[in-house]
Amino acid sequence: MKNPKITEKVAFFFLFLATLLIVVPVGLIVIIIIRKGLPAINWKFLTDIPREGMRQGGIFPAIVGTLYLVLGAISFALPIGLMSAIYLSEYAKDNFFSRLIKLAIVNLAGVPSVVYGLFGLALFVVFFKFGASILSGSLTLGIMILPIIITASREALESVPYHFREVSWSLGASKWQTIRYLVLPNAISGILTGIILGLGRAAGETAPILFTVAAFYLPQLPKSIFDQVMALPYHLYVISTQVPNVEEKLRYGTALVLLMIVLFMNLVAIIIRYKFRKKKKW
């Protein structure tokens, strides 16, 4: 092993192997779900309500429910998360207080999702009397994805080189003008990454919505934010474990739809991010 060329080849091989090992499970999951779920997908499955104790019919209410919850969560978490990221990276001095906040955010990210569910139950459902509702569920999911959005946004803001800010200040810009016209536009792609991750997480989690919003069986669409809804991950859990004799393809079909929704949202964000990235050069 004295020859550096050979050493490099060997190292390269193992690195490649490790990368391949990551791709394999992802690929397998997608392939299996598509193969088993695709036969269930048709117009009726996507637009009909569940029937016959969820053994027949479609999953439309669950799709709508998940979309509402994800949108609700993001419209709560994005403004708050972005504002606190801006505060932390642009305004906060490095002192005990700001370190405490940063520590809290890290810990928030590590809290198991079922704990969020209990927390949402106690705070939104019971204390604020929102009941089991879209509002409670969205807020709970929103709090769950807050640390993701804050962390990604902070990294994005801090990746904008410091000397750009100095240039902006030296041209007479105030701190806020600098953030508004220079830092944020250049941090957008990183912030979008945070949103992508947050969306995926909010769409896929079952535990936080279990006690706060998700309906076991509710074959109608919500009329207000105080209504319960069905949601895809919970519906998937229900038809996989709680209802006997559900056709396999229905379960995989539901999983496939959930996967597609998340992938689609990611795709949109990735396209936007790509557009912004093309402009960025330093």
């Binding site: 750009f164 240039v167 810009a173 220079l182």
Partner: peptide, 18 residues
């Protein structure tokens, strides 16, 4: 901010904004 409008600065390395 007013002062910096009246007293401009050119830095050591060229610093175009993106």
């Amino acid at each position: 901010e007013k002062l910096r409008c009246q007293v401009g600065m050119v830095f050591a390395l060229p610093t175009p904004l993106p």
